[in-house]
Amino acid sequence: MILIAMGVSGAGKTRIGELLAERLHCDFTDGDAFHSAANKAKMHKGIPLTDDDRWPWLKTIRAAIEEKQHAHETAVFTCSSLKRAYRDILRAGDKDVCFVYLKGTREVLQERLSTRTGHFFDPSLLQSQLETLEEPNEDEAITVSIDLTPEQIVDEVIDRLKMR
């Protein structure tokens, strides 16, 4: 099984991904690690990424997913996965890939981003991400509110995985 914690910046993808991997006793990989230096520089300057910027990044993450699958390993990844087309690349038709959508209000997300330090993402890009976001429907992802504590989110995801 491959889990992908998704959502806009500030949703808590990394923290939730780490906790899920810990609970599932598997590897965790932050999708941001696959961004090119050029992508990171653009985001640091507050310039939104285009689809052309994202395609190679998504394909690199998909290749990492396939490595885990070929090794028959469970793994947790993070990736904003804002559009269905992006999720389609990451999923590639695999029923073994499950998205976990971390959903939050603009206010909560802005507050989180305003207190975050040491990240390349310019908080001014939140609006662009929210405009790009195509929220997944129930058959595409497990949706969890970021108003819950990280532990409650992980508990809910684990419970919902058991029902799948």
Rank of each mutant, 00 (worst) to 15 (best):
M1S: 06
M1W: 00
M1I: 04
V8G: 06
S9A: 15
G10K: 12
A11R: 07
G12A: 13
L19K: 15
L19T: 11
L20Q: 09
L20F: 13
A21L: 06
L24W: 06
D27G: 01
D30I: 03
G31C: 10
D32Q: 03
D32M: 02
A33S: 13
F34M: 09
H35Y: 03
S36N: 13
A37P: 01
A37F: 02
A37C: 01
M43V: 06
M43N: 10
H44I: 08
G46H: 02
I47F: 12
I47S: 12
L49K: 09
L49V: 11
L49T: 09
T50N: 13
T50W: 13
T50I: 15
D52S: 15
D52Q: 14
D53S: 12
R54L: 11
R54K: 15
W55P: 10
W55M: 12
P56Q: 08
L58R: 02
T60F: 00
R62H: 07
A63H: 12
E66Q: 15
E67F: 05
Q69F: 04
A71Y: 04
E73M: 04
E73R: 09
E73T: 00
E73V: 00
T74C: 09
A75K: 06
S80T: 07
S81C: 04
S81N: 01
L82R: 07
K83F: 03
R84T: 03
R84Y: 01
Y86H: 10
D88T: 06
I89R: 12
I89P: 13
L90A: 01
G93Y: 06
K95V: 05
D96W: 00
V97R: 13
C98W: 01
C98I: 15
C98F: 00
Y101N: 03
L102N: 05
L102S: 05
E107C: 02
E107N: 11
Q110F: 07
Q110E: 15
Q110H: 15
E111N: 12
E111Y: 10
R112N: 11
R112M: 12
S114D: 05
S114L: 04
T115L: 11
T115A: 09
R116V: 07
G118V: 03
F120M: 03
F120T: 02
F121P: 00
F121V: 03
L125H: 08
L125W: 08
L125Q: 08
L126M: 04
L126N: 04
S128I: 14
Q129W: 11
L130D: 10
E131A: 10
L133P: 09
E135M: 11
P136K: 09
P136T: 12
P136Y: 06
N137E: 14
D139C: 09
A141I: 04
A141Q: 03
I142S: 08
T143I: 11
V144C: 03
S145M: 01
S145C: 02
I146M: 14
L148T: 01
L148A: 09
L148G: 04
T149K: 12
E151K: 14
E151V: 13
E151A: 14
D155R: 04
E156P: 00
E156G: 06
V157S: 04
V157Y: 02
R160H: 10
K162I: 07
M163Q: 15
R164F: 11
